[in-house]
Design a binder for these strands. Structure first.
Length: 572
RNA sequence: CGGGGCAUGGCGCAGCUUGGUAGCGCGCUACCUUGGGGUGGUAGAGGUCGUGGGUUCGAAUCCCGCUGCCCCGACCA
């Protein structure tokens, strides 16, 4: 590759719209350009990285016998109607000239399962693993962070089809290990976390994240127990406090004029927020439910919805709150609700002694409230959001710490969630029809582009791992008017390419400082300079991650070997 | 969808308060110069000031509507 014939639109200044380091560097180093909100063009350098990423994944898929396919982007409405996913909010819809309707592919469980239901007959054909690399379309409410969250993005997605649960579990484990191999090969430090499967599937699932402050997700971790979970899915164990027993006080109604929020009531009554029993009214599939939490806690609607088994769950409207409690919003309480509705309390509420709760009447609260004596919830459940400082769910003697993370991969056991409605079945060994069990596995390739940079850059630019770098080596000619140097650099460029090492020859008529700056910005793992030492037969070799002045002189004859050694060392 | 911000040559910005010839730096073109971390100089090219309307003799500037983009939140298969 010759720089004078390449598209290298590097920017000296930071584009105003970019906040994240990865976003700024992708723009400044000439990798991407924006076409619309959440819609990005990949310039030649970025496309090379994407293809490298795809290749690493492809090789790991071949290693586990996962077959590469390419499914359509257009998905007919009828197929998505079979699984009830035509009307999910992120779908881009379009119609043809005969008014037939289609979705732009946002994921491919249905399309992949459709092939299997048509072509797979017998247990002998299972398990079957297939994958593709493809552009997905999702009408994101808010794209952000360059290629971190976009409306059109490149994704690896794989699907497993198994005979039984044991097979599905084995496939899941196979992919989990494959993911570790993939990210390790890219030199990407990652964490595996228990996660919420969203609507895609609610069986076992696991996220692969890289930890960075730029991340959108909060990960809770326990180093001692080697535990990690996405905060939205992290379990909270039911643990009794070790506090000494406190005698129960009598109920007392106290005036709290205008104090509606937890903070206001806690301040007004001079009690700790965790003494307050927060009383929330939800509507689950049309039925009101009262949820109780300690005042310093937030409800985890994902856990709550799952516990109730509801399809829809949302905070009740003001009118419903008033009809359930008989009081304006802000004064709901556990004692003396107007309507008899199901009451679900978070585990912690069980251990509240002499708590405070709304009086179900305007401008009043009740003190001395004790569970068991004054109210009895239908259920105690894990209903709150876990936060840093909470006990670890697997080793409660340790406390969780938090960190931000970018989700780069997610794997799911799907069971029969899609194969059942789509009627994907096979004839088992015993001659009976049986439903196929599925798994699905995704990696956001274009998001990975940003994540790799978040995980590896400095103030001068990107630092690529050789496995994903757009080019392995940049050969810089200090001054192209030095014709022997230029000629020798061209020869080295050709030799390196012949040995299978991708290389950019920076033969532009620029000062050497410009070439150094661009090389650092673009992030080639290894740099070779034809400069001062060339007259005496040497060139300089330096890895991008080395210090500025760490270049080593090698003889021109030894340059190819030296580059190869350096790359091997960087790849380890 | 709620809150905030921005829109002026390719990029970064000033000009707007107080209406009167559209400006700066970088980049780009040509030539000279320089040649180890974005060299210095000379001469150039390039802008319907996001868009529609209104006020005015006159609008980048004042008023109203719309659109686009960014950030926070909601949401996020």
């Amino acid at each position: 590759m010759k720089a004078d014939r390449y598209l290298l639109p590097t920017l000296r200044e930071v584009p105003a719209d970019a906040e994240l380091a990865s976003h700024q560097l992708l723009l400044r180093a000439g990798y991407i350009r924006q076409l619309a909100a959440g819609v990005w063009s990949y310039l030649p350098l970025a496309w090379r990285v994407i293809r490298r990423v795809e290749q690493v994944i492809r090789e790991e898929m071949e290693a586990i016998g996962c077959l590469e396919t390419r499914l359509p982007t257009l998905t007919p409405k009828e197929l998505l109607t079979e699984t009830g996913r035509w009307d999910v909010p992120v779908v881009y819809k379009l119609s043809d000239r005969r008014d037939a309707e289609y979705a732009l592919g946002f994921t491919h469980e249905e399309a992949m399962c459709d092939i299997v239901r048509r072509e797979v007959r017998s247990w002998r054909q299972l398990p079957l693993l297939m994958f593709q690399h493809q552009t997905k379309f999702r009408d994101e409410p808010r794209p952000r962070g360059g290629t971190l969250r976009t409306r059109e993005f490149i994704m690896f997605d794989a699907y497993s089809f198994d005979r039984d649960v044991a097979g599905m579990d084995a496939s899941f484990d196979t992919f989990a290990q494959s993911y570790r191999n993939i990210f390790n090969r890219m030199g990407l430090p990652f964490v595996e976390a228990e996660a919420d499967g969203g609507d895609i599937g609610d069986l076992d699932n696991r996220e692969f994240l890289i930890l960075t402050d730029a991340g959108e997700d909060t990960v809770l971790r326990c180093a001692e127990a080697n535990f990690a979970a996405n905060a939205e899915a992290c379990a909270c164990p039911d643990i009794a406090p070790t506090d000494p027993d406190v005698p129960e006080e009598a109920l007392q109604t106290v005036p709290t004029p205008g104090a509606r929020t937890i903070e206001e009531v806690a301040w007004f009554l001079k009690v700790a927020p965790q003494k307050l029993i927060k009383t929330l009214v939800y509507v689950a599939d049309g039925t009101p439910v009262v949820v109780l939490l300690c005042g310093d806690r937030e409800v985890n609607e994902i856990k709550l919805r799952r516990f109730i088994g509801a399809k829809d769950l949302a905070l009740a409207s003001e009118a419903i709150v008033e009809s359930v409690t008989g009081a304006p919003v802000g004064f709901a309480g556990v004692v003396g609700l107007k309507q008899n509705v199901r009451m679900i309390a978070d585990y912690e509420v069980r251990y509240v002694r002499n708590g405070v709760t709304g009086a179900n009447a305007a401008d009043a609260h009740i003190t001395g409230v004790n569970p068991g004596r004054d109210f009895t919830p239908a259920d105690y459940a894990d209903a709150r959001v876990a936060v840093a400082g909470d006990p670890c769910p697997v080793a409660p003697q340790y406390l969780l710490t938090d960190a931000r993370g970018i989700e780069v991969g997610h794997i799911f056991k799907l069971g029969t969630k899609y194969s059942e409605p789509l009627k994907a079945a096979y004839v088992a060994e015993n001659g009976e029809q049986s439903t196929i069990l599925m798994g699905s596995y995704g990696i956001g390739n274009s998001r990975l582009l940003a994540a790799l940079i978040e995980a590896s850059h400095d103030e001068n630019g990107i630092i690529w791992h050789p496995s994903v770098a757009p080019l392995q080596v940049v050969v810089i000619v200090g001054n192209i008017k030095d014709e022997p140097a230029l000629a020798a650099a061209e020869t080295l460029h050709d030799e390196l390419e012949r040995t299978g090492i991708s290389v950019m020859l920076d033969n532009r008529d620029e000062r050497i400082g410009v070439k150094f700056k661009d090389a650092d910005l673009i992030g080639y793992p290894v740099r070779v300079v034809f400069g001062k030492g060339f007259a005496s037969g040497t060139v300089e070799i330096k890895a991008r991650r080395d210090a500025k002045d760490a270049a080593k002189e090698v003889t021109l004859n030894g340059a190819v070997d030296a580059v190869r050694e350096r790359l091997a060392e960087l790849s380890a």
